[in-house]
């Protein structure tokens, strides 16, 4: 019996050979939702980090402005006091 005949014979005999029943809907949905949840987490982390950085910059700017204001008062006050 040649190889082609063997293949045909076995393939014909195996026509009724079906797979066991599978139910992968749950597994698939969990796997496709996981990357989405990870992406959401990264987005929130990025937003939080950006907000913290913005607050820090605002606080630093206010601090510098207050220092400059105090320095200006220190200069102006004696000048004002010397005026008649």
């Amino acid at each position: 019996m040649n190889e082609q005949r063997i293949l045909q014979t076995l393939a014909t005999a195996a026509q009724g050979d079906g797979p066991p029943s599978v139910d992968v809907a749950g597994i698939v949905m969990r796997r496709i939702q996981k990357p989405a949840r990870r992406a959401n987490f990264l987005l929130w982390t990025y937003a939080a980090a950006t907000a913290v950085a913005a607050c820090f910059v605002a606080a630093w700017t206010a601090h510098v402005l207050l220092l400059e204001e105090n320095a200006a008062l220190d200069i102006i006050a004696p000048v004002m006091g010397a005026l008649p």
């Binding site: 019996m1 063997i6 014979t9 076995l10 014909t12 005999a13 195996a14 009724g16 050979d17």
Partner: peptide
């Protein structure tokens, strides 16, 4: 090779 059959067990063996 197993000859063609309608028996699912034989078909599984052929597969």
């Amino acid at each position: 090779p197993i000859p063609p059959t309608n028996d699912p067990l034989e078909a599984a063996e052929a597969g």
